[in-house]
Design a protein around this nucleic acid. Structure first.
Lengths: 326, 326
DNA sequence: TTGTATGCGTTATCAC
DNA sequence: GTGATAACGCATACAA
């Protein structure tokens, strides 16, 4: 490993001068600068970030905690975060929490031990003291906390939208899949949808689900049609569940959207590739990730920021699991 | 931040003793140990990994470089890696390379600057000197290099399998989608399929594709049927492309699998949720990721290892885009 | 404008 | 068994 000492020796100056040169802090004569730059190039020197981090008590690392990267919604988020950070020369220590408090603790712990300068987390416990006790900036992503910085989309609005579009397209016996109770955005969607349904005086049923996993999605779908075979509109808690519903509906010989309409949530990449392609409420996941990164960076660099809560818009993406309206 | 000094003061001993105690290195009297442990608990002390890393010239961090986490094949890989590392108390610095050499360089660079003790990479240039010059262990994942450690599945076998199953199920005018030429596993699959097709004297066409992206997959699918409308069997380069083919076939009013059979590659989670569900050649992505993690850890801890190349088996997953055979 | 010396938090050496 | 202390690589205060 080539250190600042080697560079100093090679350039015939002191380490202090090399440091000043590299960090553009303090005066350094043009000739000296040249010698140093040459030495840096010649030795292919790159500063040891660990030593830097130790001295300055902060790194160029941030911690990213997501429930499960295997859930197709999160890679988008992660990618947005990564791009935002990458562009600003921050690196990411990444972990999956599985929504497990223990793991969450462990990760946050090691984040701190590694001097990360900020954390982005999609936790279900934003108000937990794990976060309250942190003395570095935290941004909650796809989650909200009273007044902690966060980036999210309007779940309630999304739920309302889903119900409105479904009603406008003529469904009369709607089934709403209610997502996991401990996941805030899922409940917001549910609330929004139910509100509109109530307002419109539409008959609806509820199917309770407890995860967003592929494995279980199929069982909710089966349960749905077992209990409510005559339903003519399904508002799913996300696109994975919607996909399973679509699959099951077709297996039962139902025509979509003629016999039953389906609306998902998220607009994950696969949605447009299904047959029929899935109508859904789109969340701009990539943008949310990127915004979270930029917000965190502002927080890190400026200590505070005017707009701590960034809400991104949801929108109805009309595809082929809903009927056309004129 | 509470340091080892604070613990020492609180326990009424020297930092050396605390260190010995924590690292279980050297003698320490039972009574002293107790005092130290109490102090650690009381102050909620956790060692600063940065200082450790600086002194020992190595961290508990590894670098993970994937082309694009947004491609649904990679989250599985990433998750496997993460679980393998997590279980052994290693953390991951993660980056997307976009198969871009520049980015790849940058990431590897910063990995080193952060004292990572190993790297896992799905690169298209395993033989590049970026890796050759690294003096920490590297494991290539889903990629092979002459004799560098790597974890992969048998692409050629997979390609052969796809072709065999397709032939066995009666397709006579097969189209093979040839994946990006610079991606080794894609070419292996292609080779394998073509071999079998040639051996069997089956007529086949080739459609060249240059990426695995969702966005472009649809255009390959359109091109396929534009050029070879009468094809009755498609061997896709991966499940994303297969999904697009399936979608396009249905749009054209073709019945799958009656008019045209489709076989994908990878077995990403969505494959089973399509209608009809996708027959595919499965790669055990999660296991591959995990194996890569464990291999890297062996390399890190033992310096060398007997089996440097781990090949995991592929298998045909029979679903509904292929006809049943008796 | 440049160099010397100090400290960041930890571990390891060596003397006691 | 235990405690000073040097060293890891870097950035800064201060002296020159």
């Amino acid at each position: 490993m080539v250190t600042i000492k080697d560079v100093a020796r090679h350039a015939g100056v002191s380490v202090a001068t090399v440091s000043r040169c590299i960090n553009e802090t303090g005066y350094v004569h043009a000739d000296t600068r040249k010698k140093v730059e040459d030495a840096v190039r010649a030795l292919n020197y790159a500063p040891n970030e660990v030593a830097r981090s130790l001295y300055k008590r902060k790194s160029r690392l941030i911690g990213l905690l997501l429930p499960d990267i295997t859930n197709p919604y999160f890679p988008q988020l992660a990618r947005g975060v990564e791009d935002g950070m990458q562009a600003n020369e921050f690196r990411i220590i990444f972990g999956n929490s599985d929504e497990n408090e223990q793991k969450e603790q462990e990760y946050i712990q090691t984040f701190i031990q590694n001097n990360v300068v900020g954390v982005i987390s999609s936790t279900n416990r934003p108000d937990s003291d794990i976060y309250a006790k942190l003395n570095i900036p935290v941004v909650f992503l796809d989650r909200t906390s009273s007044d902690s910085p966060s980036v999210y989309s309007d779940g309630r609005k999304g739920g309302r939208l889903a119900a409105q579009e479904m009603i406008a397209r003529g469904s009369k016996r709607i089934t709403v899949l209610r997502g996991p109770v401990h996941i805030r955005p899922a409940q917001d969607r549910f609330q929004g949808a139910v509100e509109v349904l109530e307002e419109a005086g539409i008959v609806y049923n509820i199917i309770q689900t407890s995860s967003f996993s592929f494995a279980e999605a199929e069982s909710w779908a089966k349960e749905l049609f077992a209990k409510h075979l005559d339903t003519d509109g399904v508002i799913a808690s996300n696109d994975i569940v919607a996909t399973a519903v679509l699959h099951e509906a077709q297996r039962l010989g139902k025509r979509v959207p003629e016999d039953v309409q389906v609306i998902g949530f998220d607009d994950i990449p696969l949605s447009s590739l299904l047959s029929p392609s899935l109508s859904t409420i789109r969340q701009p996941a990539y943008d949310m990730g990127k915004e979270a990164a930029l917000l965190l960076i502002r927080l890190i660099e400026q200590g505070t920021v005017d707009n701590r809560n960034i809400q991104l818009p949801v929108s109805f993406v009309e595809r082929d699991t809903t009927r056309k309206v004129d």
